[in-house]
């Protein structure tokens, strides 16, 4: 069975923290262009989604951030998604980065993100608008 590619040498990642957030990871945009994860801009996501056949960009506003009952290493982030303001909660490691429109990578604990991933990161706050994806309506 195919397995996920290994993280870069030297990277020791906690479970649930994907390897592509490590600084220097190579990301392929929809037009084939390659960029480092730390160099991605809002426009890269928007333009990639425009090219995509089945995905489109949606905006997800952070409505609440609270500690997880499961572990102090996790946070629960509640988003209001899209024009219909659908409520979505995700439980993530506090260092898990989200991409904020016009701002870049942000996490609940940017110091840990920078420490573990070396990814430049700002503090994720209530009111931030993150990039999310939704499926285009296929007819």
């Amino acid at each position: 069975a195919p397995s996920a590619p290994p993280p870069p040498p030297g990277a020791v990642l906690p479970p649930s923290l994907p390897p592509y957030f490590v600084k220097g990871s190579i990301i392929q945009l929809a037009d084939g262009e390659l960029k480092r994860v730390e160099d991605l801009k809002t426009e890269d996501f928007i333009q990639s989604a425009e090219i995509s056949n089945d995905l489109k960009i949606d905006s997800s506003t952070v409505e609440r951030i609270e500690g997880s009952h499961t572990s102090p290493n996790f946070a629960v982030v509640q988003f209001s998604v899209g024009e219909h303001r659908a409520q979505v909660s995700v439980e993530v490691l506090v260092e898990y980065p989200f991409f904020v429109f016009g701002q870049g990578w942000s996490s609940c604990c940017p110091d840990r993100t920078t420490q573990i991933l070396e990814l430049p990161c700002t503090k994720l706050s209530v009111g931030d608008v993150c990039i999310s994806l939704t499926l285009k309506n296929l007819k």
């Binding site: 590619p5 290994p6 994907p18 390897p19 592509y20 957030f21 990871s25 190579i26 990301i27 392929q28 945009l29 929809a30 390659l34 994860v37 991605l40 890269d44 996501f45 990639s48 995509s52 995905l55 949606d58 997800s60 998604v81 899209g82 219909h84 659908a86 979505v88 995700v90 993530v92 898990y96 989200f98 991409f99 990039i131 999310s132 994806l133 939704t134 499926l135 309506n137």
Partner: peptide, 25 residues
């Protein structure tokens, strides 16, 4: 001889942590 190591390349959409719920009419 040292074989060149292949660098993993990740698709852009893998960086977005979830798919928003789709809206039905």
């Amino acid at each position: 001889n040292v074989e060149p190591r292949s660098v993993p390349v990740f698709p852009w959409h893998s960086l977005v942590p979830f798919l928003a719920p789709t809206q039905s009419d």
